[in-house]
């Protein structure tokens, strides 16, 4: 139990950390996908089966595809397939400092505070329970999420779509 958790934690943090350091954009993206899969494995370990598979389906199946597609569509030269220029030193230092500060505050709080924990059986939630919940108490939220997804899909298409006349002009050197 604890061993599995430790393994998953190391997997998640290591893959995310290495992804942040690499210069190759595709490698970074794939390692982050591995990290997201680790999060799904954590959900499975915690007993939330449905959420774990939803996480896999959405992050590994959909978002990673969109990301990779964006990488391929935005690369400019064939030579440097996906290398990213490093940030300036000052910027990197400031960013790392801010992240480190937040991390320090969060970590110190977690280590020092004591949370009441439930003792007893691991909670179980079946697909049926989730369905009843979604269609009963949470139905308003479900509708809102549906509207958000539709609007964002249409918005994404509008933003990314090309105006043929405009691209013709732009593409001329």
């Amino acid at each position: 139990m604890t061993f599995a958790f430790a393994f998953l934690a190391v997997l998640m943090v290591a893959s995310a950390g290495v992804a942040m350091l690499l210069r190759n954009l595709i490698h970074s993206a794939l390692l982050l996908v591995l990290s997201w899969a680790g999060v799904a494995a954590f959900y499975l370990w915690a007993g939330a089966q449905f959420v774990a598979f939803a996480q896999l389906l959405v992050y590994v199946g959909a978002i990673s595809m969109v990301v990779l597609f964006a990488v391929l569509l935005t690369r400019r030269s064939a030579g440097s397939v996906a290398d990213v220029e490093p940030a300036t030193f000052a910027r990197a230092a400031a960013g790392l400092l801010a992240a480190g500060l937040v991390g320090g505050v969060l970590g110190a709080t977690m280590l020092r505070s004591h949370f009441p924990t439930a003792t007893g059986e691991a909670p179980k939630i079946s697909v049926h329970d989730i369905g009843v919940d979604l269609m009963g108490p949470q139905v308003a939220a479900l509708l809102v999420v549906g509207v958000i997804l539709t609007v964002s899909l249409i918005g994404a298409v509008v933003i990314a779509a090309t105006d043929p006349a405009a691209t013709d002009k732009e593409d001329k050197p």
Partner: peptide, 17 residues
């Protein structure tokens, strides 16, 4: 830890993706 890694990435990296 994951949150901080994400925050560092969002602040330090200059690539929009």
């Amino acid at each position: 830890a994951l949150f901080c890694l994400g925050l560092a990435a969002a602040l330090v990296r200059s690539n929009a993706i």
